[in-house]
Amino acid sequence: MDTLIFLFSDYTFQTVALGSALLGLISGVLGCFAVLRKQSLLGDGISHSALPGVVMAFILLGVKNTEGLLLGAIVSGLLATILMISIVRYTRIKFDSALALVMSVFFGLGLALLTYVQKIPNSNQAGLSRFIFGQASTLLQRDIIVMAVCGVVLLALVVLFWKEFMVFTFDSDFAQTLGFSSQKLNLLLSFMIVVAIIIGLQTVGVILMSAMLITPAVAARQWTNRLGVMVTLSAFFGALSGVAGTAASSLVPKLPTGPSIVVCVSGIVLISILFAPGRGILYRANRRRKNRLLFRMEGGSPDVPTI
């Protein structure tokens, strides 16, 4: 207990935990829409596609600070997203194939550029490889402010366009006939997901980022049948695992932060899938067993009207 109190009063820990909590909250909210639109892998695609942007920003602009590198990440993440959407719209290639195609090309390019950059002197301090697996300990107060500002803007957009996002996610054709352009909503939502992913790159890295987007949403879906509750729960799960993961990595020596956050959120999803009332595996198994017993004892009649 004392170690925990000591930990939570530590400045570095506070910074990293706050950053991770913010990241979990934001990706938890936006992940819900990605999951419900059956675009769970979109996050994976975008985050992998951000890598060449990071390296290009370093090569072309010579920047080393996080903001500059993330700007590069946003540009290439967006480019990849637009490319994916266009491939689906103008060819007969389906979304999953378009995603895999764009993602592997961009990530491959990113790795190639990274190898090239590492041969240039002075590049070691740039610490570009931290974007692959993430390095939460490099989070500075400046980075937290950037994350907080982005987070506030993204959450405000979700609140503002709540009804539009809901009807678009449920029935995009119907939304279109109501005058809500699905093209615009699709772009807006994709753009917001890109921003959410980019601000998480420094903490968890391109490879694990998609877990932050999908896992809290999947866990939250098990507990509720209402979109509002799902989004709130998902945000909570994300933030909770951010803090818990940071704490775990501070207490156990050499345990990296990003992966331990992902392990925490995976624990939550596992518990949810097993135990959630209504949808949980154990809950359903138990109900089936009870029903079988009930039918056997009372010889239950099926609830079908006879004509």
Binding site: L36, M166, F174, T224, N225
Partner: peptide, 19 residues
């Protein structure tokens, strides 16, 4: 549409008013 979407009957019908 996907009928497993997290929404109640009322919230789906309410969508009719959105236009």
């Amino acid at each position: 549409v996907d009928w497993d979407f997290p929404a109640t009957v009322e919230s789906v019908v309410l969508m009719g008013c959105y236009g």
